[in-house]
């Protein structure tokens, strides 16, 4: 674990330094460029990456499914529908409300998933089935919105779905911060409970976990984390799948280590993916979502096939 922690800290520090220097004129860029364009972008990458990774990490335990991601609750589709609708309608909203619309869609979708999963105990398979249904419904509504959109708006919707970290100032980071705190604190406090969920509902119950209540609280925490991140940077889901998996390979499945290291891992991955997105076709940028899938996909496949362990 210590080795992984050190590597992650070094990668984070190097990523921050490199990211600050990436762009026209490198380190010699005007102070304002560094402080108002590059630094907030770094903070956004770190906070969004940590949020998405922890969200996926929590869901993989609570839903006891290694393929669970923030999207499993229908979050991406929900955010896509509300953001798509706002872009299509051409309503001019204050910027905070634009972010909030994505988040609201994400949270509404996860609420819908919760209710569709049935009454009573809501076991993991019921929740996953409901989430898949909500995702399909949302994706269809989004397609309908795209079909009805004029070309210029269509491009805007598609670009939004690819994710975006370009910022001027700290508004997006400030927007994300309360969601980060509200989701991260309960997740960190409940790492012991997350460990118990790994052994199944019955054993967790027999050891004193109120599984119905704790599952609900942890799902809310995961939805808040992912919802906040999706509102701020668009639906980038891959982080929530790949980071907890990688960390589980490196430090094991004990959530008391896994969860904080996934937060750090998510931040590092997003930071580096952002650097790549800015240098590959510099001075233009590639969408962060595309970079993450292109870099992350093969790496993830390697992990699944080779199963390396430290």
């Amino acid at each position: 674990m210590n080795r992984t922690l050190i590597i992650l800290i070094v990668l984070a520090a190097a990523g921050v330094a490199l990211s600050l220097a990436t762009g026209p004129m490198g380190w010699n860029a005007p102070h304002r460029v560094i402080m108002y364009l590059r630094l907030p972008r770094i903070l956004l990458a770190i906070t969004a990456g940590a949020s998405l990774a922890v969200s996926g990490c929590v869901l993989q335990s609570v839903l006891r499914n290694p393929l669970a991601t923030p999207y499993t609750l229908g979050i991406s589709a929900g955010a896509g529908v509300t953001a798509g609708f706002i872009i299509l309608s051409g309503i001019s909203l204050p910027i905070f409300l634009v972010y909030l619309s994505g988040t609201a869609g994400a949270l509404l979708a996860s609420t819908l998933t919760w209710f569709l999963a049935g009454r009573g105990q809501r076991d993991p398979s019921g929740l996953i089935l409901a989430g898949v249904t909500v995702n399909l419904l949302g994706a269809s509504v989004l397609l309908l919105i795209e079909y009805m959109s004029p070309a210029s708006r269509l491009v805007e919707i598609i670009r939004w779905m690819m994710g975006d970290l370009a910022v001027a100032g700290y508004r997006r980071v400030l927007f994300l911060l309360p969601f980060l705190v509200a989701g991260m604190v309960p997740a960190l406090l409940k790492t012991g409970t997350l460990n118990q969920f790994l052994t199944g509902t019955e054993i967790a119950e027999s050891r004193g976990v109120n599984t119905v209540r704790e599952r609900f609280l942890l799902l809310v925490a995961a939805a808040i984390l992912a919802g906040g991140a999706v509102g701020a940077v668009g639906p980038i889901g891959f982080v929530g799948l790949i980071v907890p998996h990688t960390m589980r390979r490196l430090v094991g499945g004990d959530y008391r280590k896994l969860l904080p290291l996934s937060a750090l891992g998510g931040a590092v991955l997003m930071l580096w993916a952002d650097i790549f997105s800015r240098v590959v076709i510099s001075p233009a940028e590639l969408p962060i979502g595309v970079i993450l899938s292109l870099l992350g996909g093969p790496f993830f496949l390697y992990l699944l096939i080779k199963k390396p362990r430290l």
Partner: peptide, 18 residues
């Protein structure tokens, strides 16, 4: 019971101390 992912036997046994 499901086999917990990524835990060693001793870690699994320690969960009983919860």
């Amino acid at each position: 019971p499901p086999v917990p992912a990524g835990l060693t036997a001793i870690e699994t046994v320690l969960l009983g101390r919860f």
